[in-house]
Amino acid sequence: MAAEGKAIDALSQFELNTTLGPLGASVNFTQSNLHMLYAVIIVLALMTIGMGARALVPGRLQGLAESAYEFIMGMVVEQVGEEGKRYFPFVFALFMFVLLGNVLGLLPYAFTYTSHIVVTFGLAAIVIITVTGVALARHGWHFFGYFFPEGAPLWLAPIIIPVEVVSYLSRPLSLSIRLFANMVAGHVMLKVFATFVVMLAGLGVVGPVLSLLPLSLNVALMGFELLVAFLQAYVFAILTCIYLHDAVHLH
């Protein structure tokens, strides 16, 4: 979609390039993967350095680490129940990975790996495979009863079962497309308005004054995108919890 000359180029920000020189190029390590590493390192550093003191009364960093832990733990216990504590590390890893991906992407020159459907679908696939695995491990063949609710009339089975199967299989799609679309839309809008700022600024005397309009809009958008970044990570994590609840309790 990138077009001629002065036109707005909102999509080149999503292009992948190998990074880390020839070594990265030889293993196709992209800047997207590098940002994943940044996110992982930031989270691990927060959780280890923050908790390094093991203080009885936490300081700021330890308070942040503990709030993150207790926030996700509260979500898991509330949605899945006490048995859900086993899956807490999984939900924590997902939430932090998505949140850091969204937030890091808002920094200038940074890459938003959650704006790639391959990444969000990869995460959603991990979720759905894990959830199905949990359900099979806990309930064995009873898991397939999930697709045909007890007490429904048998003649409805040809309708209900395909509907339930399709709705189950659409979970990873909706999970991944929701995050992907939110991130892409936000970054395209930011880029479009940022381009407006530059284009208007070049329009003679009144240009710089006019360019203040998209600039202020972009400032507001930035705050909005920060909200979306957190909200989408939260939605991703809480949907994972709901799927885990279904897997643990089967309805």
Partner: peptide, 26 residues
Amino acid sequence: PQFQDPLLLSQAVWLLIIFGAFYFVL
């Protein structure tokens, strides 16, 4: 680029490696 970049597959593979290691360490 999200649908036609030649590096998509390797990006996903690296995602699995990085996320797997992240989950393991956590």
